[in-house]
Structures are given as C-alpha cells and as structure tokens.
C-alpha cells in the first residue's frame, strides 16, 4: 500500500496525541469505531465559553490512514467553533491526505469522531443548563 507523504508525516509525527480531562464540563469526547473492525478513534475537544475549540487531542487504534486522519483533524479543530467543526466533511480529510479508495472509511471515521465529540459537548452544555 502506497501512502501519501502527508499520511506518512502525520503517522510518523502525530500531532496532539493524548487525552483531556473527561470530567471537565468544557471537554467533549467522541469515541468511534470498534476493535473488531480494526479502528477505534478517541477524539477530545476543549471548548471555551464563546464556543471556540481551544484544544483537541486524540488517540487512535488503527491503520496509518486512521492515525493520520485523526491527527489532521485535531489540527483543523483548534480555533474553530463547534458548529464549524460539525460541518467538516470526510471528503475534505480524504482529499487533504490523498487517501486511496480503500482508506476512505478512515476519513469517515474521523468525521464521525468530530460529530460524536461535538454531540457530547452539546449534551454536557444542555445538562449544565438544565441543572442551572
């Protein structure tokens, strides 16, 4: 399998590896995929009061393209609003990393991870509002 230079770069020097405090009310977590399918992505975002993503971290169990896709989105997410984040399309990720057709699912998974993290932070915010 020939990987693009961008995939290799992210794979060899992954950005923003790690975790954030999942109990922090401003941190949203998205975990998607399944070990049996060969990929699990965990994406965590920290959102400030203006709804802007301040920090993003990931951990991924998966192939090089899955690692690169999640690494790339952590770079993209920082500084965006959660609504902007929500609108990131897998095709943009696939294009940026020049993923071959058999690896498109990795970009889909990364998009799903963003959506799951955003959904988590929204749920947390809603719960906080209701509690207040």
């Amino acid at each position: 399998m020939a990987y693009s230079d961008k995939v290799l770069d992210h794979y060899e020097n992954p950005r923003n590896v790690g975790s954030l405090d999942k109990n922090d009310p401003n941190v949203g977590t998205g975990m998607v995929g399944a070990p049996a399918c060969g990929d699990v992505m965990k994406l965590m975002i920290k959102v400030n009061d203006s709804g802007i993503i301040e920090d993003a971290k990931f951990k991924t169990y998966g192939c090089g393209s899955a690692i690169a896709s999640s690494s790339l989105v952590t770079e993209w997410l920082k500084g965006r609003t959660i609504d902007e984040a929500y609108s990131i399309k897998n095709s943009e990720i696939a294009e940026e990393l020049a993923l071959p057709p058999v690896k498109i699912h990795c970009s889909v998974l990364a998009e799903d991870a963003i959506k799951a993290a955003v959904a988590d932070i929204k749920a947390k915010q809603l719960a906080a509002k209701e509690a207040a």
């Binding site: 399998m1 990987y3 794979y11 998966g62 192939c63 090089g64 899955a66």
Partner: peptide, 10 residues
Amino acid sequence: NYVEGESLIM
C-alpha cells in the same frame, strides 16, 4: 494486543 496490524506493519 492493543496494536492495529496494518499500522504495526507500517
């Protein structure tokens, strides 16, 4: 265990 095969090969 806990390492994905293809990324390991890579």
